[in-house]
Design a protein around this nucleic acid. Structure first.
Length: 326
DNA sequence: CGCGTTTGACCCGCGC
DNA sequence: GCGCGGGTCAAACGCG
């Protein structure tokens, strides 16, 4: 069915219109939304507050956030579940030649942060696991084919000069790690996130003048990769897609930047768990398979989301909450 | 010399 | 089956 197929290829999550303003052109330091309730001074003394710190220092009940993000709180998750019309999404390539519309929810548009990085504008997840589920059906269908290929490949493969596929068994489907995409508004492509990355490829993106860069975590045996590309819709927007879970601590944390990884004292770990379970729905499957999820395994984007002022986030989330009320 | 980037070639999955 | 586009490899190169 063509319609179903379309659904499988594009993961639609509505974006709240109020938040869309975060991604539109705004004068530096200006108010962020139309209500005037959110304003920040980009020249504030502490322009960067990381995600965890933001919550730690906040009086905000995490339940509000949880509800806002559609976590395990009584309020239904409008953000994740509704089919609202006033949405803003960004087409993000999530691998295997698949693109999906990634919901944007986020924060601010500081343009002259302390670090070369600009502030995080939004984060989102992509439902690779759901996608995998879809693909499983196809896989079953193709399994016979694959086996044929495998036999054939065993014959032909020997003569191939390169052994690119030796890392995985022939006929075995390339397994995609859970991915987490988020969007930043930045002048620089490669955002400093506390980990060390090695660029291993760059490709031109179809219909975009901007190339996509491929990075791998330089830590040995760490499987995490990330893709970085600029939005052709708005060149200032950088889409970063993390894939996989770090098997180690952030070097930045090791160096003493504990604020990058330390869990907020006031936030139960279950919140992180819920956050991940909902923000990265497919990870729930992983957990069901016995894998342990802990903070260190959170995508850096969640560990280190930074905001010019957490009050902004608060307003954003409050906005979510308010919007989710009938 | 070690580490990171660049870049062309190759592999792979998917749609037609 | 074929072509396209995305993802990865690895040699060459640059830099400190």
């Amino acid at each position: 069915m063509p319609g179903d197929h379309e659904e499988a290829d594009h993961y639609h999550i509505p974006f709240h219109y109020e938040l869309s303003s975060f991604f539109s052109e705004k004068p530096a330091g200006g108010d962020v939304n139309d209500t005037g309730s959110v304003g920040f001074d980009q020249q504030a003394e502490s322009p960067l507050v990381n995600f965890a710190d933001a919550f730690r220092g906040s009086n905000m009940d995490y339940g509000v956030i949880a509800r806002a993000l559609g976590l395990s709180c009584p309020a239904p998750s409008k953000f994740l579940c509704s089919s609202g019309t006033a949405s803003r999404e960004l087409m993000v390539d999530v691998g295997n030649g698949r693109k999906r519309l990634v919901p944007l929810f986020g924060c601010s548009l500081g343009t002259t942060p302390v670090t070369p990085n600009s502030s995080i504008s939004s984060s989102s997840t992509e439902a690779a696991r759901e996608e995998d589920a879809e693909r499983c059906k196809k896989d079953e269908k193709k399994q016979g084919e694959e086996q044929k290929k495998q036999a054939k490949g065993d014959e032909e493969g020997r003569d191939k000069p390169k052994t690119l596929s030796t890392s995985k068994k022939k006929g075995e489907k390339r397994q995609r790690e859970p991915a987490f995409a988020f969007v930043t508004k930045s002048e620089v492509d490669h955002l400093e996130d506390g980990y060390r990355w090695r660029k291993y490829g760059q490709k031109a993106v179809k219909n975009s003048p901007y190339p996509r860069s491929y990075y791998r975590c330089t830590t040995q045996k760490c499987p995490v990769k990330k893709r970085v590309e600029r939005s052709y819709q708005d060149p200032k927007i950088v889409v970063t897609t993390y894939e996989g879970k770090h098997t180690h601590q952030s070097p930045a944390a090791v160096r003493g930047s504990t604020h990058l990884v330390a869990p907020p004292r006031t936030m139960p770990m279950s919140f992180y768990h819920d956050l991940m379970m909902h923000q990265v729905p497919h990870l729930s499957n992983t957990c069901q398979q016995g894998n342990v999820m802990d903070l260190a395994n959170l995508p850096p984007a969640l560990q280190q989301l930074q905001f010019p002022e957490y009050g902004l986030l608060q307003d954003v989330l409050t906005s979510f909450d308010h919007d989710s009320q009938p």
